[in-house]
């Protein structure tokens, strides 16, 4: 065994040093752990499944309003809001009610044709009123609603948030600490020892893996406990993806930080790198919303590959073999950026 005077292998010591420094930085801990949990919680509540929610109907307060309200309440599935006659258009505009019924014979429906929600509410009100007035349906179809776990917005959202977090903490965690070491001349000091430069860079990526294991457990565990979001493809596959993501964005973080001399410069660069991916890579809404001409570019982005793969494992239960295309994109980015960073790196 090599004598290191009580110290471990340099790669271990470097990684531990990074790990300790991070844990002793309360702000960093907040951004990595608390922030994604708060975000998941807020979005989960904002976009919680509305399948069983009542349709909101505005009823204009004039003759017949009481009877109309009673009819709708008897039909079930409606939440009636009284609307003053002068308020109809404002109520529609500000979203207080997607449809407003003016009592009368026949009644008048006021709604917004351009909004799907408004259209649906109008149909539901019409059906209830027609039936109450005696209309017989020609047939009654069997209804099989899906509200199974795995197909709600929150199920789709959580993998995207996880991907976004892996990207954000990878870039920030690596980029920030490297530029800090550079401005404090610590890099220069390290270069004056026999330390292997590759080991130094690798320790940043490795320490990301440690945090990442914790981040993933916190985010996925929280989403599972609170919203019942599952991991259909198994925890092992999820772990492999998270590792691949940490390598990818750790490498990208090294590259972004490879020449920057100030914290401001590296922050700007990181935002420049992350911003397009927040928008394009399907974090909050599907990347398929963008035009076809952009798709080859979007699909080549590392966050798109990571999000698609995470959704494949968590929502669809795909195996890693089925996701080898995404994995290949991630590894290519990770290794490519690491190699480039090692060549470009400014040590002083």
């Amino acid at each position: 065994m090599t004598d290191r005077g009580g110290a471990s292998h340099p790669l271990v010591e470097l990684t531990l040093a990074r790990f300790r420094e991070f844990l002793r930085e309360p702000e960093a801990v907040f951004w990595v752990f608390a922030f994604p949990v708060i975000m998941t919680c807020a979005l989960g509540i904002a976009f919680r499944s509305r399948g069983a929610e009542p349709v909101i109907v505005g009823v204009v307060q004039r003759d017949g309003a009481a009877a109309l309200t009673a009819t709708l309440e008897a039909a079930g599935g409606f939440s009636v809001r009284p609307i003053a006659p002068a308020e109809i258009e404002r109520a529609l505009r500000d979203g207080r009610a997607p449809v407003v019924v003016v009592p009368g014979a026949p009644p008048v429906y006021r709604f917004d044709e351009a909004r799907a929600e408004s259209q649906v509410a109008r149909l539901a009100v019409d059906r209830a009123l027609q039936r109450a007035a005696g209309r017989q349906d020609a047939f009654v179809a069997e209804e099989r609603p899906i509200d199974t776990i795995g197909s709600r917005y929150i199920d789709w959202l959580v993998p995207g948030l996880l991907g976004m977090n892996i990207m954000g903490t990878g870039l920030w965690g690596v980029g920030f600490s490297i530029v800090q070491a550079r401005t404090k001349k610590l890099l220069k000091r390290l270069v004056a020892t026999p330390m292997s430069r590759a080991a130094y860079l690798a320790s940043h990526v490795l320490s990301r893996l440690l945090f990442l294991a914790m981040e993933t457990v916190v985010i996925v565990g929280f989403a599972w406990a609170v919203f019942g979001v599952g991991v259909r493809g198994g925890v092992a596959a999820l772990a492999v993806l998270a590792l691949a993501g940490a390598l990818t964005f750790g490498g990208l973080g090294l590259l972004v930080a490879s020449r920057a001399r100030t914290i401001e410069a590296v922050s700007g660069l990181m935002n420049l790198v992350m911003m397009p991916m927040w928008v394009l890579s399907g974090v909050f809404f599907a990347s398929s919303n963008f035009p076809d001409v952009m798709q080859p570019f979007i699909q080549a982005l590392p966050l798109t590959a990571l999000n698609d793969a995470l959704r494949g494992v968590m929502n669809e239960g795909l195996s890693l073999a089925a996701l080898r295309g995404e994995l290949a994109i991630l590894l290519a980015w990770g290794l490519g950026t690491f190699a480039l960073a090692l060549r470009l790196f400014r040590w002083q």
Binding site: A7, S8, P10, E13, L186, M195
Partner: peptide, 19 residues
């Protein structure tokens, strides 16, 4: 050079010694 503020004296020396 400013050594890392949030490492202890011993951790800092272990790091340098490991090289």
């Amino acid at each position: 050079t400013q050594l890392a503020d949030k490492l202890t004296v011993e951790e800092t020396l272990r790091l340098f010694r490991s090289f």
